[in-house]
Design a binder for these strands. Structure first.
Lengths: 340, 340
DNA sequence: GTGAAAGCGCTAACAT
DNA sequence: ATGTTAGCGCTTTCAC
């Protein structure tokens, strides 16, 4: 079965290629009848344009790409449909591209920019380190979304929450509920992203309340297991419980980690929240269906995605160049914390 | 900041474009020195080839695409890295493309075939209805993976499990444990995919054991909520509990649904498995960290992905045309079932 | 070992 | 309203 090109269709219909092109792309100045004839041939022979040729030819497009690092992050899942809807509202077509842990997101971004003649790009997740340097060669409007950078360290458009502040918030909440011995599961030892920021918030909260920092209650995720996984939360919590160090509350750096922690705690015969209170971070769907439901910090994923599109659009339209939006996240008070 | 093309680099280096092309693509017949010179310019000016042009020009590639319907299905998550590794082993480069619920997967497949000059394509998930008709215009080797088709109804390469048989297996297990009043959460009313197949297995198991089918114990997922979501499992289980119909065991059509069901059951004051036994289907990671851990049917995701690649490779190499592999899934006996 | 040139399939002037 | 044609940026003969 052979593949038809625009030339074939033109020949079949006895018209020029440009007429076929116009008919396909709904160009106004085409006779209704010829148009119908062309479209019928298109259907009949299952002609599908070659996007490589289209992209190559067009000097510009309305494509916007969303580049995701850590596609399986459940927190991102609430954002995908929002990106899609919002970009469509602004008449952009969009491409979602996942970048693997091993891949160079900047390289991929560059390839995409050329290949699809992107108008703009949104980076979702990832992107630690010197952001400005990394983005140096991205010569189209771009917005960072949900990346672990601090305001100051970055000279690009940005949508995020203040991980330090929010983590401080939830730990303060625990303290208000009477907890003093608060354990924390933070990122792997080498982590410099959200794990580190959330740990910083934890430390600040303790400090403000005159509670002494106890290294024994800080536990890093296991390097040999995917970080922020259920299993990691389970394994390290189990280790913590076995260590014998006492604590009345546990702050997990993510809801998924908290889920693993639940299992470890319950398995050890302890109850949540009667014996140990637990809080998470992210506010993913799962938190509400855990039993007891998980008290956590809920990031406003939908609003963040929407704002990222808005900033990108502004930048594309030239209305502004660099602007940052830091959202405040809400404490979602569920059942996993006991007032002692 | 301007974008460099191969011509620019050629000019800068004082060579022809073909030399640049050869240098970039590691063509053997290039003088080491010129090659070095070219690559340095490439680095210096951040030249990145335009993939559209590359794809357009090349008459064939080693690209294989994996087209996923329902990317967020957690069961698929264990498969992605396997596809990647296995395809790489066979020297294929691979593209993962998600197709939205609203999108026409066949259209996208066709576009991809032309755009990337695909050698083969794997369809992961989706694909209900008349598969043969849908695939009629896919003129490259293709393999269906984890789709809800029955062996007979499809004349294409296929990797799957037998949903009916496996569901029968888990229900039989419940019956062996002494359960007679077994409720089931199945797909939405209009579902003709896995929900329907798994329901059929349930019916068969009951039938074989002379247990009367009780319509009151079958509950469809709610149309107004994403199917197979936690929430759907929660909502319908709650409804079932409130209906007052008695049952000692609950079979949820997926692990995620079972997770929602857990919450509904526990919230109602009942215990798992003492009061109600629960089983799921899929065998995703989560099942092992639920409390109690969920007894379920574990689909061999990794092996299925591997086999899909093998079949595709065979087909590409012309060793075979159509072959089907039906894997058997294992009953994962965890803690959520009580012997009564 | 290297360059010139043809052409992949399409769109968009520019003609007519 | 429609056809002709020049490239988009690259790879790949084919000469040298």
């Amino acid at each position: 079965m052979s593949r038809y090109t625009i030339k074939d269709i033109a020949k079949i219909c006895g018209v020029g290629t440009s007429t076929v092109s116009r008919a396909i792309n709904n160009d106004p100045g085409v006779n209704e009848k010829t148009k119908e004839r062309v479209l019928e041939a298109v259907r009949k022979y299952h002609y599908i344009p070659n996007n490589s040729a289209v992209n190559l030819k067009k000097s510009e497009s309305n494509n916007v790409a969303v580049l995701v690092k850590g596609r399986n992050n459940p927190f991102f899942q609430s954002m995908y449909s929002v990106f899609e809807t919002e970009l469509q509202k602004h008449e952009y077509t969009f491409t979602m591209r996942e970048v693997g842990a091993y891949e160079d997101e900047m390289r991929i971004a560059q390839e995409l920019i050329r290949e699809k003649r992107l108008k703009g790009i949104i980076f979702l997740g990832g992107m630690v380190g010197d952001v400005d340097e990394k983005l140096e060669h991205i010569d189209i409007p771009s917005v960072l979304c949900t990346v672990a950078v601090t305001m100051e360290s970055c000279n690009h458009s940005l949508v995020a929450i203040d991980d330090v502040k929010e983590s401080e918030k939830v730990v303060n909440y625990l303290i208000r509920q009477g907890h003093k011995k608060i354990a924390m599961i933070t990122g792997v030892r080498s982590d410099s992203g959200i794990g580190a920021l959330r740990l910083k918030g934890y430390e600040k909260a303790l400090d403000e309340n005159g509670i002494e920092f106890d290294e024994n209650l800080i536990i890093n995720m296991d390097d040999d297991i995917p970080d922020y996984s259920y299993e990691n939360g389970y394994v390290v919590t189990k280790k913590l419980l076995e260590s014998g160090h006492k604590f009345s509350a546990l702050f997990a750096a993510s809801d998924t980690t908290a889920f693993g922690a639940y299992r470890a705690i319950l398995e050890s015969g302890k109850r949540i929240p009667e014996d140990i209170s637990v809080v998470g971070f992210d506010g993913i769907d799962m938190a509400n269906f855990m039993y007891p439901s998980l008290t956590t910090i809920k990031q406003p994923g939908e609003r963040m995605a929407k704002e990222a599109v808005r900033l990108l659009h502004d930048e594309i339209e030239g209305n502004s160049v660099v602007s940052k939006t830091i959202f405040s996240a809400d404490l979602l008070e569920n059942e996993s914390v006991k007032n002692i």
